[in-house]
Amino acid sequence: MFDSYSISELGSIFVMQGFAGLILFSVYLLMALGLAIIFGQMGVINMAHGEFMILGAYVTYFTSQAFQHFLPALFPAYFFVAMALAFVASGTLGMIVEWGLIRHLYKRPLDTLLATWGLSLILQQVYRSVFGPREVGVELPAWMMGSLKLTDTIEVQINGLFVMTLTVIITAVVAVMMFRSRWGMQVRAVVLNRMMASAVGINTERVDRLTFGIGCGIAGVAGSAFTMIGSTGPTAGQLYIVDTFLVVVFGGAQSLIGTILSALSISQTQSTLEFFLSGSIAKVITLLGVVGILMLRPQGLFTLKVRR
């Protein structure tokens, strides 16, 4: 299959596909980050995670509309406002859901899976009824349009670069929160020993709610970033949920580095294969590879041996 390309063309293909893969990587990682916090730290499966992301995307869409109509002067900067709003909206919804639903199910992980699936169906229908069934796309500010020409044959889109930068920043913030902040310490304490954490004065219920809220909030931010590179519809979240879960599980649920590396390897494999094979076969091979490796190493790629 390489016959028809020259060496330099092949090089460019790999770079461009690598870049496309990096955008996919950003989407996977942003979604997986929230999921990794909720699943990795709390052991809760949130099948509605994609819908929290879509909520963030809708918030971004409406913020862009509002800026266009009321504050056109500030339009170039609307995205940063939208991102904050998306975090707050998804995070708040997440905390409400934790209070109303998740906290009753901490001892029944399989049931959480079903309940959050139900939640995702409800959210999808609500989006469809409120925002309409059509996909919506935001208008990008002028500075985000266009592309950078690196060489004659290689060029990269600015919005893609922007999303990647954003991913790096958000990941860094999450890492600092997990490993440096008081909240992160409390979360890890609760995960390791809920009784003891509660005995030393940590309000475990509050930590749970906050953790779930922050995980959902990050999903909202992911959705916000998502609008920069694609359009949003009521069921767009569902398309990504299984992939994202595989990313988290593949990396080893409790490891942030693992999540990053697995998002990177899965997205790069998929986008490179996509160029040479049809999209569906590329996806099938990637997913099969992940499932196959998970069968050989169910604890994920980056976990340590611990006493059961």
């Binding site: 639903l101 079903l114 309940a115 699936w117 139900g118 995702s120 169906l121 409800i122 229908q125 009824s129």
Partner: peptide, 16 residues
Amino acid sequence: ELWLLGLGGLFIAVVL
């Protein structure tokens, strides 16, 4: 349009 709401609600009700 009500069906998905109903089905979703059913999932939650049955579990909770």
